[in-house]
Design a protein around this nucleic acid. Structure first.
Lengths: 151, 151
DNA sequence: TTTGCTGCAAAGGCTTTGCAGGCCT
DNA sequence: AGGCCTGCAAAGCCTTTGCAGCAAA
């Protein structure tokens, strides 16, 4: 049941991503379908290399520059978001639903969502013109801390 | 008076940085003195290139790899902190005094400190083991927004 | 059919590394 | 005097770009 729900969500996400590309006048190629599928099913962050390796399994002929080109295009379009984790660039599907923040596991790099947003509480000098903000909590998710405590 | 105070702070910071290096058994070279001075006096973030350009004025013979080596060593030691701004790596002197967060001007890259920390308020799942957190607010500082509104 | 997209290859940045000589301690 | 640090040079990533052929619309 949970599994079925997850598959449904992934399928929705894939369709959304492909629709977004189409709306921007982009062509839907096999490579881009692979890319959409990959990010819709990913639970954490993916590096360009991760993306290349994964795509190559389903689509052997893919090249590195195509990966980079599409990662960049999708990021500029707001479908993916970039993030620097351990000094290397990573990507994940941007959460389109509503505003929230993440806890990020520094071991497996999976993310856990929470609703609290500090911007509602913070009191700031009025002469600073706010554009956006970041708030992330780093640590070990339940699975990784369980592993660490059973050596 | 304010100027005098600032100079005093810079001087303190330089001494702290040099002492930290010395405590770690590192040698105090002219290049490292330049580096310490530069970061103690900088108000915002500096890229490796910025650092190289600035150091070269006071110390013409400096090389790029020395800049990188020392930036890395100082970061690992906790004297400097790294940050990705506009997709490029930047450095600044880590605030040693007390815990706080920053507003960062996306134009001039200067930072404004504020005391509010969201970790006191946020309520999280107990099975996530927190290690650290980031909270930054991006926008235009008073000077840059004033410039923007007078074209 | 018409562009846009891809793969190939090569170039371009940024950062790191090996080495001999010089400087800090 | 000894060993760390530097500058030079070159290599090593990671990422971008030019180009001809192919594929989506």
């Amino acid at each position: 049941m949970a599994k079925h729900k997850h598959e449904h969500d992934s399928h929705e996400t894939i369709q959304e991503m492909l629709r977004a590309m189409s709306n921007h006048g982009w062509r839907i190629t096999d490579q881009r379908k692979s890319l959409a599928t990959l990010f819709a099913e990913a639970e954490g962050y993916l590096s360009p290399k991760d993306v290349y390796e994964s795509m190559r399994q389903k689509y052997p002929g893919v090249s590195f520059d195509t990966v980079y080109r599409n990662l960049r295009l999708l990021s500029e379009m707001g479908v993916l978001e970039q993030f620097h984790l351990n000094d290397s660039l990573k990507f994940r599907a941007r959460c389109q639903s509503h505003h929230h923040h993440h806890m990020i596991c520094i071991q497996c790099e999976k993310t856990v969502t929470f609703e609290f947003c500090p911007m509602k509480q913070v009191d700031l000098p009025s002469d600073f013109q706010i554009v956006n903000h970041r708030f992330e909590i780093f640590g070990y998710c339940s699975e990784c801390s369980a592993q660490a405590s059973t050596p």
